[in-house]
Design a protein around this nucleic acid. Structure first.
Lengths: 243, 243
DNA sequence: CACAACTTACTGACTTGTCAGTAAGCCGGT
DNA sequence: ACCGGCTTACTGACAAGTCAGTAAGTTGTG
């Protein structure tokens, strides 16, 4: 009722986000019949994958607003007009559902960015700032990301591995971009610190903004990224603008 | 079993944290008998306030590791050797228990800082860096802070108001310190942005560090704070060192 | 004694997950 | 073109557990 079902939540990924369902040619992507079992592997039907995607979007919404632990299968099911047992039919368990929600989002993120090559160097930082600006119009996505991230540090949380991996990848990409932008004068260790700080400040500002919208998400993010890049910049080098 | 029961969780407050129970003179702080009811207010007995404090520490531990929603009253009760109904006898409801946990921590924070005046100006930033360093030795506290903060952005969370207020106060204090340090050359708006960014980066780095200890919490925090302060510094002014 | 600090016992709401049964659709053979 | 055999997509009922909260009774202590 409030905000749309989010297609993505990553700190980097996605700008505008057309929620178009992506029609795909016809039928199913012809799954590789896993060698060994000679049974006809006629699994995935078109209607099924669409139904599952519906459920995944509903689950993303519920887990995003209520959190994983608090969001119930019944609530997810209701959104797509089935019972909680129907959801379990498709995903087996609640944990598995969460894992597939996360994977689904990753795939969506990739789809949105395809064509437009993954930005590197200064373009990455511009992308980050644009993302922060875009996020000011979709609190639902930001909330979902913040809630899941916060929850993931509890004991044995099913999203923990996913979040950890995501941070690792992100730090790697941003570290590369830092080294590209400021040249070979930086110690690797400092570039990693800068990358961690940039991710940290983005996430931390999101939480503050969610709780109190006097915080200027986009402005503060831009300011902080610029400050951090400036700090790793050797005296001679001048940074390109982030616009 | 794993880590000690945390006395505090704020991003600013507390350095070492002696878990000493603080004996206090004798009896109770003589509660202001709210004018009107002439009942003898012999409520608080010494043993009782200590028992409650025990429960509050246990609850802080449970909510910190499992989160508020997932942590149960039974688990809290078990830690102090009573049943969950015994806990409810003291606090009335789970929500109320959480609120009192939060208040208890605030009081503890204040107690620890009393005598040593609340730092302002450059001393505040030194305090923040020292806190980050100290936090590397107490993941329990950091986790508890991160979990509760993340959870608080969900719908109708009982800690939401508290977390929001805390951020507001913190931003105010840090903004003042920024203005003190870099002089009158800064626009107020920029100082607020810097304050938000500093809080954000501290919180964000904590989460990354909890999930992956290759992140250097103290170093990265120090680096980021320095970078942000440098960025709001007018060309002429030179910052004092953060050591 | 009176009251605080419990315990025991229980309720009702909600959880995830299992299971059997049903309706609908596809699929190959004739 | 229809039929038997099969899979998928559910529903509804239920199991088994956890949870917060309540009510009534017990114990110990100032």
């Amino acid at each position: 009722m409030d905000d749309d079902v989010p297609p993505t939540a990553s700190a980097v990924a996605a700008s505008g986000g057309a929620p178009a369902p992506a029609p795909e040619p016809t039928r199913a992507p012809a799954p590789a019949t896993t060698s060994g079992a000679p049974k006809r592997a006629r699994r995935t039907r078109q209607a099924t994958v669409e139904r599952r995607a519906e459920i995944l979007r509903a689950a993303a919404h519920t887990f995003g607003t209520k959190g994983y632990k608090t969001g119930s299968l019944a609530e997810v099911a209701e959104q797509v007009g089935i019972t909680h047992a129907g959801v379990l039919h498709h995903f087996g368990s609640k944990d598995q559902l969460l894992v597939e929600v996360l994977e689904y989002r990753d795939k969506e993120d990739v789809r949105e960015l395809e064509g437009q090559h993954i930005p590197g160097g200064i373009e990455l930082f511009r992308h980050l700032v644009r993302t922060a600006a875009a996020n000011e119009d979709r609190p639902g996505i930001v909330q979902s990301y913040s809630v899941l991230t916060g929850e993931s540090v509890t004991e044995n949380h099913p999203a923990r591995a996913w979040v950890t991996e995501r941070f690792t990848v992100l730090r790697g990409e941003i570290t590369d971009a830092v080294e590209t932008v400021v040249g070979p004068g930086v110690e690797h260790e400092r570039a990693v610190e800068a990358a961690s700080a940039i991710i940290g400040v983005m996430d931390g500002l999101q939480v503050q903004w969610l709780l109190d919208d006097t915080v200027h998400l986009a402005h503060a993010t831009r300011f902080a990224i610029e400050a951090i890049l400036q700090a790793v910049c050797p005296p001679g080098v001048t940074l390109p603008s982030l616009d």
